[in-house]
């Protein structure tokens, strides 16, 4: 489980990538990135999430928790919600098959 808070933009997206990569190096079965506390998500951040999702394919179940207009809506508008498993709550992200 990785908690992310604050604003994910062009300047901060690389940091997000580093944190996710560090978590993936632990080889968890499932990695949940919780964006519930994120109040701004730019496309630079979405590119990082997509990249990590592609990297995790076949080895780690990569999941995102996001809800609301700051995070879910932008991902929906760009079609990202069709590519990555996104859940409204942590419980659902952790317990879904």
């Amino acid at each position: 489980m990785l908690n992310v808070a604050g604003e994910i933009d062009l300047a901060t997206a690389p940091q997000l990538g580093e944190s996710i990569n560090a978590a993936m190096e632990q080889r968890p079965e499932t990695l949940v990135v919780d964006l519930s506390q994120v109040d701004f998500l730019a496309s630079a951040g979405m590119a990082v999430l997509i990249g990590c999702h592609q990297q995790a394919k076949g080895t780690i179940r990569f999941r995102i928790v996001a809800t609301g207009s700051a995070t879910f809506r932008p991902m929906e508008l760009t079609g990202m919600t069709d590519e990555i498993s996104i859940f409204p709550t942590r419980d659902e992200a952790l317990t879904a098959d």
Binding site: S43, G51, Q54, P74, T78, M80
Partner: peptide, 15 residues
């Protein structure tokens, strides 16, 4: 770019 980039313009159009 394999779906990685290029989300900025669609996002602008959607918003």
């Amino acid at each position: 770019s394999g779906g990685l980039r290029g989300r900025g313009l669609p996002l602008i159009q959607g918003l």
